[in-house]
């Protein structure tokens, strides 16, 4: 399986930004965990982060062209604002999971709307930084059509 893990704005600050909400793991350590877990299971992970909405849209378009099997996306704050990311995800026909470290529905009201949730197969939130690795572990048991 080819897997894109796409992260949105401010996730590069993980480990230092509000650790009581997001934990002390850095993005680098999460990326290492994902890549190691995937390669043990014979999968390939491309782990990405951008603070720019358009770059995220282009990565999703790239996933369409490259026939990537799975997108795991933590669009962070763009979750609540980006119709462009919603549209790009709609165009991607592979398996897609929206992931959040904390549970946005239990935070400020402006985080309760997600433009991503209705465009994905599944939503996973509030499992902390370990959520990424848990989702990668689960992929072989999900109904994913592998290209």
């Amino acid at each position: 399986m080819n897997i894109y893990v796409i992260n949105g704005p401010n996730i590069n600050l993980l480990g230092t930004r509000e650790p009581e909400i997001y934990g002390r793991d850095t993005l680098e350590s999460i990326a290492t965990t994902c890549i190691e877990k995937a390669s043990k299971a014979g999968h390939k992970v491309d782990f990405m982060q951008s603070n720019y909405e358009g770059e995220i849209v282009e990565w999703i378009q790239d996933a369409i062209i490259q026939k990537v099997d799975v997108i795991i996306i933590n669009a962070a704050a763009y979750t609540h604002t980006s119709i462009a990311i919603h549209d790009a995800l709609k165009s991607y026909s592979g398996y897609k999971v929206e992931l959040h470290i904390s549970n946005p529905h239990l935070r400020e009201t402006f985080r309760h709307i997600s433009f991503i949730s209705s465009a994905v197969n599944a939503v996973v939130a509030g499992l902390g930084p370990d959520g990424y690795g848990h989702v990668i572990d689960l992929l072989p048991d999900l109904p994913i059509k592998v290209n």
Partner: peptide, 29 residues
């Protein structure tokens, strides 16, 4: 989704029966 005062409450939506398995793995961790 359900409401609660702690944003650490997990939410898994749309993974079929595997959602339970993911929840158990996370809880165990």
């Amino acid at each position: 989704p359900l409401n609660a005062s702690d944003s650490g409450v997990g939410l898994i939506s749309g993974l079929g029966d595997q959602g339970y398995i993911l929840a158990i793995e996370s809880i165990n961790q």
